[in-house]
């Protein structure tokens, strides 16, 4: 038990400091806090575990049995739904969508931030203000006019309007801008003295230094693009390019049995979960660090 508390001696943040831990009431408080945190994590994770469990049920069992656990763990049921929906198709489309969104997120927002943070052409303050204001504009109220414009340009049924939408993101621009402003001026000056042009400085000096922030933006873009549904639904519905989310959103209008819907949800959760498992450190750090400044 004492081992449990020795670690508290080196506690670096929070209200309870290392020197508090000798008191019994603080020790009890630490244990209670530990238990609360465990309960919170259980609450956070349980719904996701439940989808996995419920996916094994058949329709009658799901609708009538008062149980959390399925009677049998039969993977062939999952496979049947997988095949019936031809899920690989939706995965492929979502992947195309996500990869394109990463590129546009990094490229367009990075370029604009480069101009705002380093080149600072005349009038850049106005541009920055316009960009910041767009954070305050309710993006989804634009959807009617935006959808109309997409149709006028005949871009419906393609990924282009979806990819490019990620190229105009004020939040990513702020992230890039903050980062670029932290790059030592001497490096840029040295580049200029070597006769490097504006684009050369961007590609040869700034981009290689910006990998951490590119990673953060890419991760944000992956999560956002994988989950995005409203514009993809309007633009891709009824084409061969429907993404996983378009399919999930369509279930609200189609008579599909509840278990198939749940299994589709499970399939939709698996890829981000794998990515999260691989990069949890970067993702949680990025989420914290990224938004502090924004």
């Amino acid at each position: 038990m004492n081992g449990f508390f020795t670690k508290y001696k080196n506690k670096k943040d929070g209200v309870i400091r290392g020197y508090d831990i000798s008191s019994t009431s603080v020790k009890i408080a630490c244990i209670i806090i530990m238990l609360i945190c465990l309960a919170i994590v259980l609450f956070s994770v349980f719904p996701i575990i439940w989808v996995f469990l419920a996916s094994f049920k058949d329709i009658k069992e799901f609708n009538r049995n008062v149980t959390i656990l399925p009677d049998v763990y039969d993977f062939s049921r999952l496979k049947a739904t997988w095949n019936a929906f031809s899920f690989p198709k939706f995965y492929r489309n979502s992947l195309i969508m996500v990869l394109g969104c990463i590129l546009t997120s990094v490229f367009f927002n990075g370029l604009l931030a480069y101009a705002l943070a380093i080149l600072k052409p005349k009038g850049h303050n106005v541009v920055f203000l316009l960009v910041m204001w767009s954070l305050l504009i309710p993006s989804s109220t634009n959807i009617i006019a935006l959808f109309r414009n997409i149709n006028i340009l005949n871009l419906n049924g393609t990924f282009f309007p979806l990819w490019l939408a990620y190229g105009a993101n004020a939040f990513y621009i702020v992230l890039f801008k903050e980062f670029f402003e932290g790059i030592p001026k001497e490096l840029l000056e040295a580049g200029k003295l070597d006769g490097a042009g504006v684009m050369k400085i961007f590609t040869a000096i700034i981009l290689p230094l910006s990998k951490p922030i590119i990673m953060v933006v890419a991760i944000f873009a992956v999560t956002a693009a994988w989950s995005d549904f409203l514009l993809p639904y309007l633009v891709l519905k009824g084409t061969n390019y429907e993404t996983v989310m378009v399919k999930l959103f369509s279930f609200k209008d189609t008579p599909t049995d509840a278990v198939s819907v749940l299994r589709a949800c499970l399939f939709a959760i698996i890829p981000p979960t794998i990515i999260f498992a691989l990069f949890q450190r970067q993702i949680t750090d990025g989420a914290a660090a990224g938004a502090v400044k924004g």
Binding site: V41, S44, S227, I269, P272
Partner: peptide, 29 residues
């Protein structure tokens, strides 16, 4: 969570997990 020293990484990951689940899927669940 700032007040814990054990399993802090686990808590951070745990509470962040729902955030990566697509919104539509969470609503169905």
């Amino acid at each position: 969570i700032s007040e814990t020293v054990h399993m802090k990484g686990f808590f951070r990951t745990g509470i962040y997990f729902p955030n990566i689940v697509p919104g539509i899927a969470t609503i169905w669940i």
